[in-house]
Design a protein around this nucleic acid. Structure first.
Lengths: 147, 147
DNA sequence: AATGGTAAGTTGGAAAATCCAACTTACTGG
DNA sequence: CCAGTAAGTTGGATTTTCCAACTTACCATT
């Protein structure tokens, strides 16, 4: 009866960063590449789509457009706090790719300030144990189709 | 000169789960919804696209098709180990959405077996400290455009 | 002074992906 | 016998994406 999709923060998040090239654009920004041409070449996105994605990321508050040159006006895209918080998402995606998809050695390696090569792990904030899918239970979820 | 995009596990991961509906499909599977019609309704994906996505997820080794009825043949989609490992990605995306996008109370709440309401946190495996973007440095990365 | 390169887009038209409603097959329950 | 459920498939319309070329304006070189 209720043909409404499930309400959920994953869907909300994807409505902002779920389109093609958005996450790769943010990857470049996190790697320090913050100008249009370079982002276009490093991702492979076509210029028109990249322009649209960057505008959306700015409108959505993930990036800020900083002018670094007037005449002609040129901008670079720097992450806001909201944008920076997405770094964790990209790291978990990278980790999954490293482990299960990419055959070779991890192409990208980060170091943590503690001195170690970064291995990102998701833990429960309360007990600090690494999350295992089998140890999770749904407590509350929107149920679009009751019957 | 080199017009090759950057080689990276995030791109590899997105080549499998980056298309529209793939991650929402996996969300449903993790919530225990494993049959075609329900997934279609709960996500809002059109049936033809959903069929294509499910096939791809099966081919890519994230889901397995289990027959639960012959005559007519009916299947359900259950996550493999590779698929289950993506739960962490969805949780980090959910957490980001909860914090920065969704205005209301978190629509979906998970509990951890330790008894606490789940708050997923990304930590450095070595020192166990929560990751802060400012404390990360790139050690190695594919550089598509040298000059 | 003219030429080529860099930079950040924008434009128009072709190609690909997605959407949508209707159809199919084969059971089950009333 | 009819309606409902389930897992898709099909054809055609709509929307996105792709691609190459164009624009504006500066700087470095010849």
């Amino acid at each position: 009866m209720a043909h409404r999709p499930r309400q959920c923060s994953i869907a909300d998040a994807l409505s902002i960063v779920g389109e093609r090239w958005s996450l790769l654009t943010l990857r470049e920004v996190f790697l320090g590449v913050r100008r249009f041409d370079r982002i276009a070449r490093n991702t492979g996105a076509s210029r028109d789509i990249l322009a649209a994605r960057l505008s959306k990321l700015v409108e959505s508050g993930l990036l800020e457009k900083k002018q670094y040159e007037t005449h002609p006006p040129r901008y670079e895209y720097v992450p806001t706090e909201t944008g920076q918080a997405l770094h964790a998402v990209l790291l978990s995606l990278m980790d999954w790719g490293d482990r299960y998809i990419t055959r070779t050695d991890p192409p990208t390696v980060w170091a943590h300030d503690c001195g170690a090569t970064l291995r990102p792990v998701m833990v429960c904030e309360h007990c600090r144990e690494p999350l295992r899918p089998a140890e999770l239970t749904v407590v509350r979820v929107d149920q679009p189709n009751p019957e």
